[in-house]
Design a protein around this nucleic acid. Structure first.
Length: 331
DNA sequence: CGACGGGACGC
DNA sequence: CGACGGGACGC
């Protein structure tokens, strides 16, 4: 459908294969060698490019790393996003880079990277598909497109994985007869409306509700291993565990050690949709207190889920709660 | 005779 | 806040 070869002759392999390049937001002091040192373990690096100011030659704090395969780039994102590399610097950000011709710098959402679309024999059941594809990673669900009236298979199916790297591995390695590709997002709507429909395989997810607020040590934020990608949908409204708190798109953040605006912003901006961040420090204690606001409720829910109890800096657990005022309950 | 292209979700 | 260099192909 899209023919993105054809202009820019010398950049032919930048987006080949698709989604094989990561976009990094790092400290300005991070050199190409330091990046290579940390990112080589995820795959064959074909190119590293630290973007520098034309005149001063100083790094702008962003870089691109091109891998041979999409699965390698995805793993680098999953493992490195949110990590604090050199101490006393902000957590880095790692995204799948937009293709070079793209004018939009919208972040590529994981929703767009975890679902594949494929062709199957009409005799296949959902379980058949799952059994064929679980070798690439845990399968969130499979769905076969069927005739609405007769219920017969149309020979087309979707498979949702938990991690982008698993979807990429499936595309790279499954039998070619499946013609597996990344699925286009089903809905252009909000993340909340998407999440609402992803309740298919709820058994594994329900087990995770036993520990709804994992206290991850300061490391990668996207510890996909626990299938937490859509968990926030489970906390959306319908307050389950400890009484119902009223959610809002505004959060309060408390910290035992003083933090400045940049630090809070850098941390909460790891969750897409951050609108603003306001940090105040209590003059008579060393506590820091901040208000952060997201564009929508589901981003805020996800941010609270991911960052409440998070150690930042290491040893300092943040407290994150909903701010009741100013939060309209719908979005 | 002769052998493979097609492809989108109940909002 | 945080998005695109360098270098040169082969009839």
């Amino acid at each position: 459908m899209e023919d993105n070869s054809g202009f820019r002759p010398s950049a032919g392999n930048l987006d080949d294969p698709p989604n094989s390049r990561v976009f990094l937001v790092v400290s300005k002091s991070m050199t190409e060698d330091m990046i290579r040192e940390r990112f080589a373990e995820f795959g064959d690096i074909q190119d590293i490019w630290v973007v520098k100011d034309r005149n001063t030659k100083e790094s702008k704090g962003i870089a691109f790393v091109k891998y041979a395969k999409s699965s390698q780039a995805c793993r680098a994102m999953e493992e490195m996003h949110g990590r604090t590399l050199s101490d006393s610097s902000k957590p880095i950000k790692v995204f799948i880079a937009q293709s070079r011709g793209s004018t939009s710098h919208r972040e590529v959402e994981d929703e767009e990277l975890t679902r594949i679309f494929l062709m199957i024999p009409k005799t296949y059941s959902e379980d058949d598909i799952k059994n064929r594809f679980k070798e690439y990673g845990p399968v969130e669900y499979c769905s076969i497109i069927k005739n609405k009236t007769t219920g017969e298979s149309k020979g087309l199916a979707y498979v949702r994985f938990q991690k982008p790297s698993h979807a990429a591995l499936a595309i790279e390695n499954c039998d070619r007869s499946f013609k597996a590709i990344l699925a286009e997002p089903r809905s252009r709507g909000s993340a909340a409306s998407e999440a609402a429909d992803y309740h298919g395989p709820s058994r594994q997810q329900q087990q995770q509700q036993q520990d709804p607020l994992p206290h991850e040590p300061a490391g990668a934020m996207y510890s996909y291993g626990q299938s937490d990608q859509y968990d926030y949908s489970l906390y959306d409204k319908a307050g389950d565990s400890r009484g119902q708190e009223s959610v809002s798109k505004r959060l309060t953040v408390v910290s035992r050690v003083p933090l400045v605006q940049d630090q809070i912003y850098g941390l909460f901006d790891l969750i897409p949709g951050l609108e603003f961040c306001d940090v105040q420090r209590d003059m008579f204690s060393s506590f820091a207190y901040a208000v952060v606001q997201y564009q929508n409720i589901s981003s805020a829910i996800y941010a609270k889920y991911k960052l409440h109890g998070f150690e930042y800096p290491p040893g300092n657990r943040l407290g994150v709660t909903y701010l009741s005022d100013g939060g309209d309950g719908t979005e």
